[in-house]
Design a protein around this nucleic acid. Structure first.
Lengths: 339, 339
DNA sequence: AACGTTATTGATAACGTTATCGAATCGTGA
DNA sequence: TCACGATTCGATAACGTTATCAATAACGTT
């Protein structure tokens, strides 16, 4: 393949250029750039002037290759979707105070299992001083650099972890429906391989038991966290005479699909069917009717993960498992059952 | 400062390790990794096996330092706020098809003028093959790598550019107010140094003229695009007897502040005052009342910028100035004026 | 059998930076 | 005047990778 035929007019000013212009060696320039001891005041100012004049900026790649200390933190995501970008915002707002810079990395959407190890290997050792990995599928503790996992698929393990309280959130959601007077409540679960899905179902069952309500197993489906995968089980749940008066879907996307199926079957939400979701993604506020759901404090989680990572790098000892609270967000998709 | 006292149990498997284990030279491993011609089928499979077994992954830093071709594209933002993360999502969704990977970079929130040149210098030449810079303040054409600017502050210049039609959007907003019957319309402009602000004001004035309405200059303020900076001018606009019946604020944040001030002064929106914004940031849908505004297709802009960048790198000739259409989003903050 | 071709491999030199350490310079006290 | 420590500076060797090119092996040709 041919390289692009661009004329690279400005071939990038490197340390050597600065050194030549200032009449010193590259070693001295390096010292100035990094504020090392052992350079005379006069040369320091002169070199500094040349740096400003030429607009020199150290190459991140070269620097990290040599020094293994880059002042850059990585946040590794499978792809930039709403969930991870919310975390990114949180991490970004927290990075300001730390003196680090933030680099977000995503592969070409492949999203295969084990992506986090590949990315990490690629960037660590060179390029980044530590990393936050978002919803990793495989968590191993033996990486070269400090790593914090956010919402790992397998639940907290050897790695420092930040997640939200899926269990308590599911209890909140169920209690909300029960509080409205619902007795016959359906549950549309998430991907069975995910810890979060397991916890949400457990929270649902626990709250039902506390309320003294039996769980009708024929009203428990697997929605798979996505609209396409939630469609069929939603129909099974709703297309029957003794259908539930309310459905708790394990995430917002499947809840939105439940509402769509309900309308398609001639019901109206929330008059004929109450629906509650989980996650509070931006779409949930725009759904019609706006979806009642459980909020995960994504931005806070991102910020906390970043603070945890920095403390880890600095060798500060602190709790390495953070679980942030979830909360009920009441909108318009739930109402008391008829009669 | 002391380095973190972690025991780096796994010191990172490098090419040399693979070479030793497979019984070949590093040069051969490099060829295998990069799919170069000139390695026997038998050695190829053997080396590949060792790579998989050891979990080797090339160091991005070292590779790019040497080869200047990384298959990584950068998207450079001052910080990760809603505007840039929307663009990021769009770029991310478009990168999948290209075979490139995406690296988003943000400095520590400093946000000084000229950040884009610093970041670019830092990453280009090493590390990335091309970059998208988001809302750059200074645009120079002479960078070492292909660069696409999104929504540059100074308007399209020498650099390939993607932006949205600020002028037409402002016309749409003004027409909407006029169509509702408003005659006395206030305008709260943006930052005067920004091209987008200039265009939005020009669109407003044009639409007013077309409608045959004179612009009362005392009803034109400068809101500065932020809530804090919009507060005082909003008060000036509304705290008078001959106040406007509608206000077009040049972005959503200042529109939201206008609504807040109106409520504080005892008015109700939209009964006593119609307010329209610009941008359609997520917050605008959640405001009360939900804000009528002009949508910029941010995700599309991100995706188009990425496609443009890839074409540029591949040397494909194509139009280098893309202007995407804006559209009116009607929510609940505008109504006909009283009487 | 001697030779030329082609396929395969590995030494070696970059890439731009930082860490180390020895050399040069300058004072200063004896 | 000499010796010695303190200060300032620069040569040089890494860091992990890829590009180049020479060396070698294997094979077919005359």
């Amino acid at each position: 393949m041919l390289y692009a035929p661009h004329v690279d007019s400005t071939p990038r000013v490197k340390m050597e250029d600065v050194a030549r212009t200032a009449g010193v060696s590259v070693a001295t320039v390096s010292k100035v750039v990094n504020g090392r001891y052992g350079v005379a005041q006069s040369t320091l100012t002169r070199v500094q002037e040349v740096i400003d004049e030429l607009g020199y900026e150290a190459s991140l790649g070269a620097r990290s290759l040599r020094s293994h200390k880059t002042n850059v933190l990585g946040i590794l995501v499978a792809e930039f979707e709403p969930f991870s970008t919310e975390l990114l915002k949180g991490a970004s707002s927290a990075v300001g105070a730390t003196g680090y810079e933030l680099l977000a990395y995503s592969g070409g959407g492949g999203g295969s299992v084990g992506w986090e190890r590949r990315y990490l290997s690629r960037l660590s050792g060179t390029l980044i001083d530590g990393a936050i990995i978002v919803t990793p599928t495989v968590v191993e503790a033996n990486t070269g650099v400090p790593v914090v996992a956010v919402d790992p698929h397998t639940g907290p393990t050897g790695l420092p972890t930040v997640d939200s309280d899926n269990y308590a959130g599911a209890v909140l959601a169920t209690e909300h429906l029960v509080g409205l007077g619902h007795r016959r409540i359906g549950f549309l679960g998430g991907r069975t391989d995910l810890e979060s899905a397991r916890l949400r179902e457990a929270g649902f069952r626990h709250a039902m038991e506390v309320a003294g309500l039996p769980v009708d197993e024929s009203l428990v489906g697997v929605g798979g966290y996505r609209r396409e995968t939630a469609d069929a089980p939603a129909r099974v749940l709703l297309d029957r005479d003794d259908r539930p008066t309310a459905v708790f879907a394990a995430n917002d996307l499947s809840a939105i699909q439940v509402m769509a199926v309900a309308v398609e079957l001639g019901m109206s939400v929330p008059a004929d069917l109450s629906v509650i979701g989980f996650d509070n993604v931006p779409e949930s506020a725009l759904a019609s009717p706006p979806l009642t759901t459980i909020n995960q404090p994504l931005q806070e989680m991102g910020a906390e993960a970043l603070r945890l990572l920095v403390d880890l790098i600095d060798g500060k000892d602190r709790s390495t498992h953070l679980r942030l609270p979830t909360e009920l967000v009441v909108r318009a998709s739930c109402a008391p059952p008829r009669h």
